[in-house]
Amino acid sequence: MNDMPEARVSDSASWFLSTARERIAGLLDHGSFMEFLPPTERVQSPHLALFDLPVAFDDGVIVGRGRLAGRDVLIAAQEGQFMGGTFAEVSGAKLLGLIRAARDNDKLPRAILLLLDSGGVRLQEANAGELAVAEVMRAIMEARMAGVAVIALVGGRAGAFGGAGLTAATCSRIAISEQGRTGVSGPEVIETNKGVEEFDSKDKALVWSVTGGRNRRLIGGADAYAEDTVSGFREAASSLIDRAPTFDLATLQAEQQRLSARVERFANCSTAAEMWRVLGITAPQSIRDMNDAAFVKIVADVKEASHDGR
C-alpha cells in the first residue's frame, strides 16, 4: 500500500504547531499507520494549475487506518497549512471514500477519527468542495447509523469552520483544545456580513473566547477538552470512542432539546463571559487565564458541558 515512514513524534509535541502527518504519527501506535492513496500515487487537484497555484501530492488530506492505543481505527487528517486546510474535489473524495467504506463494510474498524483543520471549502474549487461537504455530512450520518463512532479532533491552526465546522457538528463526539476553534461562519465572515458591531474579527480575545475550545466545551459544543499535545488528543479520542452515543431518534430529540434550551438560556448574553456567568461560574473572567487542569475541574461542575445529545 505504501512505504511512508513515520517520524517519531513526542507525546508532548504541540498539536497546534504540528503538521497533519506529525499528528497522525504521534496519535497512533508507532508503526501502525497504513495510508490509502499516499503521496507517491499523486492523487492531486487537477484545478490548481489553472490558477497558477502549487498542488500538494495528497491534496491536503491524508486518509488511512491504524491503531489508537491498541484499537483499530480509520483516520483522516486535513493539513491546515495547505491553502488553509481544504474541502475540494480530490481531498473531499478521499475523505468521502473513507467514511463510505466504514459505512458499507463492517469488517473495517468501527471508529473514524477526523483530524479537522480547515477554514472550509477551497474557493478555487468551490462547487466541488460544497458538494464534498454535503456528501461527507450525509456519509457521516449513514456511518453513525451503521454503528460507526465518528470522532472530530479540533485543535489546528485553521480551526474547523465552514464545511469543517458543519462536518464536526455531524460527528458522534468532538474533542477540542484551548487553541482549537470551531463554528460555521468564521469571524471575518460574520463581520463582513453583519458589521463590526456584531463581531469584531480583529479582537482576538473576543474571537477566542466565543469560538475557542474552552467556550465550546463549557456550553457543550464539544464533548472533551484536550491538552494541546499529541497525548492530550490521544486520551480524548480514546475516551470519546467509548462514549459515542447511539444515533437514533432519541439522541436527535435530546440534541434538539439541548440546543433549544441553550438558545433560551443564553439569549441575552453578548459575550462569552456572560454565558459563563449564566452557567454558574463565579469568576468567569478567570476562565481564559487558568491552566488546563484548573479548567478541567471547572468543566466537571458545569451541567451543560455533558449531555446525551449530538
Binding site: 499516499p38 503521496p39 507517491t40 502549487p54 498542488v55 500538494a56 497549512q81
Partner: peptide, 18 residues
C-alpha cells in the same frame, strides 16, 4: 532502504519534497 518519504508542506515560505 526506505522506498519513499514526504517532508514539509506546501505553505507560504515552505515546500513539500517527495
Amino acid at each position: 532502504d526506505r522506498q519513499s518519504v514526504l517532508v514539509g508542506v506546501v505553505a507560504s515560505g515552505n515546500l513539500e519534497v517527495l
